[in-house]
Design a protein around this nucleic acid. Structure first.
Lengths: 223, 223
DNA sequence: GTGGTCTAACTTGTATGGTAGTATAGCAAT
DNA sequence: ATTGCTATACTACCATACAAGTTAGACCAC
C-alpha cells in the first residue's frame, strides 16, 4: 500500500495515504480498518492512525463506530448523485465567471491540458483522471475561487471512487475530451450561457454509468 | 464558556463546544488555544482536545502550527466572499429544484418559519439567525439534498462569524424577512427563474456589511 | 438439538509520560 | 545601547498503558 514519506506529521501522511487507497479502491468498501493493524503495518503508534481516521471520517470516507470498529463506507448511489448535484452547481457558477473574464492565459493553459489528454494511451484511466482533475482545477483557480475548489476537492472523492471502479472506462475518453473542448470554446468566446450548458452536459456524464456499475460491483455499494 | 454535556465522546463534545465559541466570537480571532489549557479547563486529558483541534482545523476555524501553537484563525474577507459565492451557487440550484417540485407541505413549513421570524423581538440577533438557518435547511432537506446542506453547514461557519460580529444587525431584520417571503412566493408559484433571482438577491446581503465590519473590528480580520 | 450464559479476544476512547522543536527572556560581550 | 548567546519555559507530536464497551464462540442446562 506504499510506505511513509518524510516531511509532514505522521498523522497527515497516513491521512493522505489511506485516502488515496480508499479512492482507488485498494481498501474495499465495507472493509474493516483496525487502528492497531494499521499502526503495526506502518510501525507507528495508534495515535497518529486515530487522527487520520478522524479526518477520513469527516470526509465520509470511513465510519468510526465506538467500541465496534472503523469501516470503509460503501458507496451510496444517493450520495453520489447528491455530490454530483453540488459539484455541478459550483462548477457552473465558476465556469460562468471564467467565460465573463475571458482570460487568454486560461484558455491557453486549458488547450495545453486538452492536448495532453488526447495523447493518453487507450486504457490509462488513472492518467486521464489526473488530467481531468487538473482541467477543472485550473478553471477554478484562474477565476480566483480557491475555496470553491477546496470544496469540490473534498466532495469529489465520492465521485472518484466510482470512476476508479471502471478500468475499462465506461465513457469513451474521446467523448470527455469533446466535452472539455466545448467548455474551453465557450470560455474563449466569452459566452457564459454556452459555458454553463457545456459544463452541465459534462457533469451529467457520470450518471450514465452509475447504475450499471452498481450492478456490476454490488459489494461496493450500500443496500 | 459552558460545560460538558454527557452523551458522545469527549472529543466530539469539545469540538462542538469550541466550534460554537469560535463562531459566536467568544474565542476571539487570533487568540491562542493551548491543548494543555483547554484540557485543564474542562478537566480532561490533552488527547481529546487534540482531536477536537484536528476537526476544527479541517473546518479552517483554527490553524495548528507544529511546535508553535494553535490559533483561532482570523476572518479573511477574501474567504468570506469566496464562501458566499459557493453557498449562493448551491442554494440557487436547490431553490430552483424546490420551485420545480412545488411541494405544498414545504411552502407551509416555510410560511410557519416566516411567521416566527416576524415575532422576533427587536435586536435578538441570535434567535433570528437560528430561524434563518432553519429556513434554508428546510428547503434543502425538502428537495432531498441532504448532502448539499451538509456542505453549506460546514462552510457557512465562516459567514456566521461575520454575522455574529454585529449585534445591532447591520441589515434590518424586516428586510431579510421580505427577501425570504419573495423566495417562498416563487416556490409556491412554481417559478424557478424567479426563485433563482430571489435567492441571488438574498445571498448578496452579507456583502453590504462586510467592509464596514472589517473597519469596525480590525483585529478580527487578517491583513 | 436448542437456548442462555459466561468468558475471552477484539474494538475505540482516555490518560499520561517523554521527545523534539520553537520562541522568549536574561545575561554577557562588544 | 546593541548584538549575540544560552537557559528555560513553553508548544504540538508520538508512544504507551489502561479503561470501557462490543462481539463471537465455547460451554452448559434443559
Amino acid at each position: 500500500m506504499g510506505s511513509i514519506e518524510t516531511g509532514k506529521s505522521i498523522g497527515v501522511q497516513l491521512h493522505n495515504l489511506l485516502r488515496e487507497a480508499i479512492v482507488r479502491g485498494e481498501l474495499r468498501p465495507g472493509e474493516a480498518l483496525s487502528e492497531t493493524d494499521i499502526a503495526a503495518r506502518y510501525s507507528v503508534s495508534r495515535q497518529p492512525v486515530r487522527e487520520a481516521f478522524i479526518r477520513l471520517a469527516q470526509e465520509r470516507l470511513v465510519a468510526v463506530l465506538p467500541q465496534r470498529g472503523t469501516f470503509v463506507v460503501k458507496i451510496s448511489i444517493r450520495d453520489v448523485q447528491d455530490v454530483r448535484f453540488v459539484r455541478e452547481a459550483i462548477e457552473i457558477a465558476v465556469v460562468r465567471e471564467a467565460a465573463e473574464q475571458r482570460d487568454p492565459a486560461l484558455v491557453k493553459s486549458l488547450r495545453s491540458i486538452l492536448a495532453q489528454q488526447r495523447k493518453v494511451k487507450g486504457g490509462d484511466n488513472a492518467a486521464f483522471l489526473a488530467l481531468d482533475e487538473q482541467f477543472h482545477q485550473t478553471i477554478a483557480l484562474a477565476t480566483g475561487r480557491e475555496h470553491a475548489w477546496r470544496v469540490i476537492d473534498q466532495i469529489k472523492a465520492q465521485m472518484d471512487r466510482v470512476r476508479y471502479l471502471s478500468y475499462d472506462a465506461a465513457t469513451p475518453l474521446s467523448r470527455l475530451v469533446e466535452q472539455h473542448t466545448a467548455i474551453v470554446d465557450a470560455i474563449e468566446a466569452g459566452d457564459p450561457i454556452a459555458a454553463e450548458k457545456a459544463m452541465h452536459h459534462h457533469q451529467q456524464e457520470i450518471l450514465q454509468s452509475l447504475s450499471a456499475l452498481a450492478q456490476r460491483f454490488p459489494d461496493a455499494f450500500e443496500l
